[in-house]
Write a protein that binds this DNA or RNA. Structure first.
Length: 760
DNA sequence: GAGCACTGC
């Protein structure tokens, strides 16, 4: 392969550094492929070939116990169309978007597609296994069709009896779009036989038998229905992601099954005579099935092949210290030597993305005329939606699109047209550091990805056709990667989970979890709950704690809402905490318009700090919203560097909070008007543990610990010294920064923890 | 005086 400098790229940096990365034999790729020598086809991801699972240390062990569902079953024609449910689909549907008539061409095409999915061949074997066993582990590669088909097979076979089938997903979009798809396949209107439930959005009815829901939603349902008695089958999808809520669900399902299937023994025999037995199906995409199996009394593991185009994987011959530079050189090697096709580059964060984009655009301008144009797009969570969406626009003719993305493109978003993937092997990961004193804090540091992540990234090149993945790390480095990431339960704060479990009468340390968190993390959470008055000296849930758990909020903010009743400022506190709980930040940062941003933000700035600054922004938006149309509102937000989606999401959250408040007798209209003190006081109750005092040397030191914290430069209090502060959270990057900071009179908060306990 | 992967109720 040729060096980019061959094309006359002339910055000083490039002259010093430019050398091509020695990708083994990539340049004469086509010739070598036909000869079958030269090109190393390492870990090639070919339709379900065993190569793909080579990365897993225990892959070979799995084989012993895995039985393939591909054992020669032929799908029965009577089932492959529509089963017992078909009678329900014959009702006339008034609206045009409803299901088509059973014999329409569209419906037939849908059923043909269903029958061709890889999992369809194993249908009978799969149903038989689920019938025989209380718990089934199903390993399915991408494209196997397991998530849409298994619930339908279970329904159509009658295994669910009269109960519902729950299918849990870690993400909302997945739950809603899967339900949509399955409703089409069942030829019913969404919300009838097939429905979904995610936060702020539910489409289900008394007729619903297959319900897709987020894992958070079903964990919430546990609070009102501890045995999940509405469901006869619970399918946990994407279990390998090991989200906190999936782990809590998996643990609870085990105890629920022990109660609902009284005769079940360790080998998991059928329980035809139990009145309302529960079937569990764990679906996962990776190699760690053994662990799920062991957890569920050595449950049977089934394996189903996927449908993926082959992806050739090249590892870098030597390790690349400067991964952005290596990514740039690799991009230009692809651009100059490889056939057309868009490129996706995985980078850890926004900063790397923006700097690499600049370099690529700089060098692309110096390419000879006969080379295709380069179009760069960036994709990361903090970026405006419209910018992220640019990657989806069709690539113009004679152009190669280069998408620079974070992990967002690994699971959450699928970009069409990608033929080449460049994987830096890095990501950023949040990790909670528990400190018994001071409550602990989050860190966000760049680290190596895992094997499953690396495979996922490579797979992104094979969505639509054969692809190529260039890894900017050696094959040894790949082999030394962890198989999978640490489950979330081991790296996040447990304050909210412990509070919710206490409402179920459970203690987290006694729960039968697949992975148990540190005692330090648990005691840090217990300490926070005690400070909030949610538990008493004997760690028993208090009346106030029970109220806090009802709110879909961090316990700190729930505590502030509960406290606001006394100070008569619930309206203001709801405004603030609903913004703080929204998934996107309110204040948009645009790196190249920084001066304009700070200037505009001054309008909302409140002298006491960030919380009341948020309140000012909410009040200003509300005025605009009342007076102006949608377009003007959006324009106003853009001009003021405010994220309107945050306002809209916060409005939904606020509505939920109003319902909860009303239920427990908190007057949501109680307002302190322009008196700020009660608002800060209420927040002070919730943030009693998150406080720091100014030291003589100008730094802030935690009141509950010894940590020196710095006010984050993005805060309105960044260049102002006040005697005492409260803050939303701490984040360690280069230093320990307090974010979401407000000044608070010293006399306030030192007593708040005690007040919380007294009230409780 | 400096930077923030991704979910979810």
């Amino acid at each position: 392969m040729r060096d980019p400098s061959y094309y006359g790229l002339k910055t000083e940096k490039n002259h010093k550094r430019a050398k091509s990365i020695p990708w083994p034999d990539v340049s004469d790729d086509d010739k070598d492929k036909t000869k079958g020598n030269g090109v190393k086809r390492k870990n090639s991801i070919v339709n379900g070939s065993s190569d793909q699972s080579r990365g897993g240390q225990n892959g070979h062990k799995n084989k012993k116990r895995r039985s393939s569902v591909h054992n020669g079953d032929t799908p029965q024609s009577k089932d492959s169309a529509h089963g017992p449910s078909s009678s329900q689909s014959k009702r006339p549907h008034v609206n045009g978007s409803g299901p088509s008539t059973p014999h329409s061409a569209k419906f037939k095409a849908v059923q043909e597609q269903r029958a061709q999915l890889p999992i369809a061949k194993g249908r009978e074997a799969l149903i038989e296994e689920i019938r025989k066993n209380d718990v089934t582990i199903l390993l399915g590669e991408t494209g196997s069709g397991k998530t849409t088909q298994v619930p339908q097979y279970i329904l159509e076979s009658g295994l669910a009896r009269n109960g519902m089938i729950a299918v849990t997903q870690p993400r909302k979009v997945a739950a809603t779009s899967l339900a949509q798809r399955v409703a089409v396949e069942q030829n019913v209107s969404l919300g009838d036989l097939v429905g979904y439930a995610v936060r702020f959005d539910e489409k289900s009815s008394t007729e619903t038998r297959i319900k897709y829901l987020t894992d958070g939603m079903i964990v919430r349902e546990l609070m009102s229905d501890p045995l999940l008695s509405h469901y006869s089958v619970v399918i946990v999808d994407e279990a390998h992601e090991r989200t906190l809520r999936t782990d809590l669900l998996i643990a609870n399902l085990k105890t629920i099954q022990a109660k609902r299937n009284p005769k079940s023994d360790a080998k998991g025999k059928g329980n035809a005579d139990a009145s309302n037995p529960l079937k569990i199906v764990i679906m996962s995409a990776t190699l760690d099935a053994e662990k799920f199996s062991r957890f569920y009394h050595n449950a049977k593991i089934l394996y189903v092949k996927g449908r993926q185009h082959p992806v050739k994987i090249y590892h870098s011959a030597e390790s690349q210290l400067d991964y952005t530079d290596a990514a740039m050189r690799t991009f230009f090697q692809i651009h100059t030597d490889q056939p057309p096709g868009d490129v996706l580059i995985f980078l850890p964060g926004q900063e790397d993305i923006e700097s690499l984009q600049k370099s690529i655009e700089l060098y692309a301008r110096q390419l000879p005329r006969d080379k295709p144009e380069v179009l760069t797009c960036t994709m990361f969570a903090a970026q405006e939606h419209s910018q992220n969406n640019k990657a989806f626009a069709p690539t113009p003719p004679n152009t190669r699109k280069c998408i620079l993305a974070t992990n967002i493109a690994e699971t959450s978003i699928t970009i069409p047209g990608i033929k080449y993937v460049i994987d830096t092997g890095k990501c950023k990961e949040k990790q909670y550091l528990a400190r018994t004193a001071g409550g602990g804090f989050d860190t966000l540091l760049t680290r190596d990805i895992t094997k499953s992540s690396a495979m996922q990234r490579a797979g992104r090149a094979g969505r639509e056709g054969a692809g190529v993945c260039f890894r900017l790390y050696t094959e040894d480095a790949f082999n030394n990667m962890a198989v999978a990431g640490e489950p979330e339960i081991l790296r996040c704060s447990l304050t909210a989970s412990i509070l919710n479990l206490k409402c179920l009468g459970q203690n987290l340390e006694e729960l039968d979890l697949m992975d148990k968190p540190d005692l330090e993390t648990i005691s840090s959470a217990l300490k926070t709950l005690w400070l909030l008055g949610a538990i008493d000296n004997n760690q028993k849930l208090t009346a106030a704690g029970r109220q806090m758990a009802l709110f879909p909020l961090e316990p700190q903010y729930a505590c502030a809402v509960v406290a606001s009743k006394e100070y008569g400022c619930t309206s203001e506190v709801l405004d603030i905490v609903s913004i703080l709980s929204a998934s996107s930040k309110l204040f948009v940062d645009i790196s190249d318009q920084r001066d304009a941003v700070t200037e505009t933000r001054r309008k909302f700035k409140h002298s006491s700090g960030d919380h009341l600054t948020v309140l000012n922004a909410v009040r200003a938006y509300r005025e605009i919203a009342a007076a102006e149309n949608k377009h003007a509102r959006r324009e106003w937000c853009r001009k003021h560097f405010l994220n309107e989606r945050t306002f809209l999401e916060a409005r939904d959250i606020r509505e939920q909070l109003v319902v909860t408040c009303t239920k427990i007798g908190i007057d949501v209209n109680a307002s302190a008007k322009d008196n700020d003190e009660p608002v800060i006081r209420s927040l002070g109750h919730g943030l009693a543990g998150n406080s720091a005092l100014l030291q003589p040397d100008g730094t802030y030191k935690q009141t509950m610990g010894q940590t020196i914290v710095k006010v984050h430069p993005g805060s309105t209090l960044a260049d102002k010294k006040v005697p005492a502060i409260i803050y939303d959270d701490l984040m360690y990057t280069n230093q320990i920064y307090a974010r979401g900071v407000s000044a608070i009179p010293k006399s306030f908060f030192l007593t708040h923890a005690l007040l919380n306990q007294k009230k409780a």
